Computed example of a mutant assay.
Amino acid sequence: MAVTGDILATYRGPRRVFARLLAMGPREDRMLAFLMAGCALMFIGRMPSLAREAHLTGQEQTMLLSNALFGIIFVAPLALYTLALILHWIARILRGEGESHAARLALFWSFLATSPLMLLNGLVAGMIGPGGELNLIGGLWFSAFLWFVISGMYQGYWVRPEVQA
């Protein structure tokens, strides 16, 4: 299935999509592609709010965009790899039987799958600005992200492969 189809299917049944991705095997290139695509979409989602900030404060937009690009494309992947390692350790402490690639896949796929909400959050931040609407969309993004990560971690660490559908 195409990535966009998998993203839509994740909102209906995250464990099913994650089981299918996990069954494809531990492919680090695919996980890195998910992560970098999510980071690129996050940067695109930040553009409207950075343009608004540059207009309202008189700062140079190029500087704001280059700082965001550096942070999102170079620093965020390192932070997400670290977070995936921490999630793996927590799952192992809780008697999970999965491998570390399952934690990376759960986190990176969740990040990419929630990118439509990230883009919506960026539009709201750029067009409406701070307020209840932005908090609502941000909370919706965080809730979906958390739901997908927990579902993926459960599927990767506590569901036996012979039981997976």
Score class of each variant (00 low, 15 high):
A51P: 00
E53V: 10
M153N: 01
L8V: 11
G96C: 07
L117W: 15
R52H: 13
Q59W: 07
P161H: 15
H88P: 04
I44F: 09
A68K: 00
S143Y: 04
I7G: 09
L146D: 01
L83T: 09
R52C: 09
E162W: 11
G126Q: 05
S100G: 04
L112Y: 05
A103I: 00
W147L: 15
N67C: 06
E53H: 13
L123E: 04
L21K: 07
G131W: 13
L112N: 03
V149A: 03
E162R: 08
I86F: 13
P26E: 13
R27L: 14
P116K: 10
E99I: 05
P48F: 05
A125M: 00
T114K: 01
W141L: 12
L21V: 05
A19S: 14
A54C: 02
L35W: 01
V75H: 06
F145E: 01
L117Y: 02
M24Y: 07
R12V: 14
E97I: 03
L35T: 03
I73Q: 11
A144V: 00
N67L: 15
V124A: 05
L112M: 06
S100W: 15
A40M: 13
E28H: 05
M36T: 12
A102I: 04
F148P: 02
M63L: 15
I137G: 02
F148G: 03
V159K: 12
L83C: 08
M47C: 14
G152V: 04
S110C: 04
L146K: 03
H55K: 10
M63D: 15
A84K: 02
M153Q: 09
L80W: 13
G45I: 08
L32T: 11
E133R: 10
G129T: 11
R46L: 14
M153T: 01
N67I: 14
I72A: 01
R30Q: 12
I73R: 05
A51V: 11
G58K: 09
H88G: 01
G25Q: 06
F142V: 01
W158S: 00
P14C: 07
L105E: 06
G132T: 15
G132V: 14
R27M: 08
L146N: 04
W147I: 04
F70M: 13
